[in-house]
Every structure is written in structure tokens, then in C-alpha cells.
């Protein structure tokens, strides 16, 4: 069979939601949250590196991350983890022929759970 060169330049089109169905929106959402969580992992490791610089540096850093901008960032991480994790369950189930015909309903149901959980965490984080 003929060679088929990869087209990585088209990767950006994965994130174009125009004229796409709900399945594609789930596909795009999973990629954005996956990339976001990967970036966060690196940031998290850098933050942990503060521990090596002694208690004062660490306490100073913790004081900084308690401001509302950092809290909003943390909420984004929680939202990404919930969306990615719950959508991952949907993909895991449907990928092996279970409930494949109900993937839209699964997506709507699980994302409803995600939204409720995000709102709960937002209230907890910003009112305590």
C-alpha cells in the first residue's frame, strides 16, 4: 500500500468546533483539558520545588497562591480534571462497544455531573 505522510499541520483543525456535532465537542474538550492538566502538572512540580528552598520561601509562596486569581486557576484545574475524567469514563465505556449508541446521552449526563461538582467546589473555595 502507498505511503501516507502524516499531516501534523492539520492538528490545529482538531480544535475548530464550527459545524461539528456533540461528539466532536467532547473530543475537543478532552484535548483542551488534557493539555491543560499536562501544563498544570509541570507548574505543580515547579511549585513543589519551592519546598527545597526552605520554610520561609514555601510559606511566602503559599500566601501568594491564596489570592483569588490563583484560586480561580485552581478551580480551572478542578474543572479540567472533572471534565477530562468523566469524559474519559464515557470514552472508556463506549470504546469497547458498550453503550456506543448512547454516547451523546452519556456525555450530557456526565457533563451535568461535572458542572454540579464545579459549582460545589467554587462555592467551597470562595466562601471559606
Amino acid at each position: 500500500m502507498a505511503e501516507h505522510p502524516q499531516k501534523p499541520a492539520n492538528l490545529i483543525k482538531w480544535f475548530d468546533p464550527r459545524n461539528k456535532s456533540l461528539g466532536s465537542w467532547a473530543f475537543i474538550l478532552n484535548r483542551i483539558t488534557g493539555l491543560g492538566l499536562t501544563v498544570y502538572l509541570f507548574l505543580h512540580l515547579i511549585m513543589l520545588g519551592q519546598l527545597a528552598r526552605g520554610p520561609e520561601a514555601y510559606d511566602g509562596f503559599i500566601a501568594l497562591v491564596k489570592n483569588p486569581i490563583f484560586l480561580a486557576g485552581e478551580l480551572l484545574v478542578i474543572a479540567a480534571a472533572l471534565i477530562h475524567g468523566l469524559n474519559g469514563i464515557r470514552i472508556g465505556i463506549t470504546s469497547f462497544g458498550i453503550a456506543g449508541g448512547k454516547q451523546k446521552q452519556l456525555f450530557i449526563g456526565l457533563m451535568t455531573v461535572a458542572v454540579i461538582a464545579i459549582v460545589y467546589f467554587a462555592i467551597r473555595m470562595f466562601t471559606h
Binding site: L22, G23, S24, A26, F27, Q103
Partner: peptide, 8 residues
């Protein structure tokens, strides 16, 4: 990758 666009 389960985008389901084919079925649509």
C-alpha cells in the same frame, strides 16, 4: 479517537 463525526 471517538469523535463520532462519521456517524453524524
Amino acid at each position: 479517537h471517538s469523535a463520532y463525526e462519521c456517524t453524524e
